[in-house]
Amino acid sequence: MTQHTKHTDLTLDISSKTDLLVEVRTFVTDAARAFGFADDDVSNIELAVDEACTNIIKHAYQYNPAGRIRLAISSTAEQDQPRRFIITIHDDGRSFDASHYTLPDMTQYFQRPRRGGLGVVLMKKLMDEVEYSIAPGAPNAIRLVKYLLPLHPRSA
């Protein structure tokens, strides 16, 4: 029997403006540290969430500051599983269709230098799970998950 708990603890609702990325980073680093992550993981989560919000500001809202970005942090704890730290980010802008996106091969990327396109690569490398969901009439959602591994795993 698996014990399963889920908490939605914290939310942040901001305008689609790059000067508010600092608020996003403070919000997520405080929560990640309180959850128990070590400094390296806190930094990785901070950067992944910054990249997600930057992409929303840039691509979903195309720098229109009237757009809203809503972040929610939740966690799950299942028996014998790592605890999951989950950041869900919603927006109402243009959808990013991840099914038509392939991660760039970095060797090829460097043969044709260009600006941008690196955020999604970073998110995938920094987090354990990255999932986009888009549906007609519903806000876009991206869900970023990081596992908190126990320091001293119990042997079976």
């Binding site: 980073r25 230098p113 600006r115 941008g116 690569v121």
Partner: peptide, 16 residues
Amino acid sequence: AYISSAGLGVLMQFIE
């Protein structure tokens, strides 16, 4: 203290 991919993008913009 901190860099995101936007900063790396600037380097990519000028290297060529």
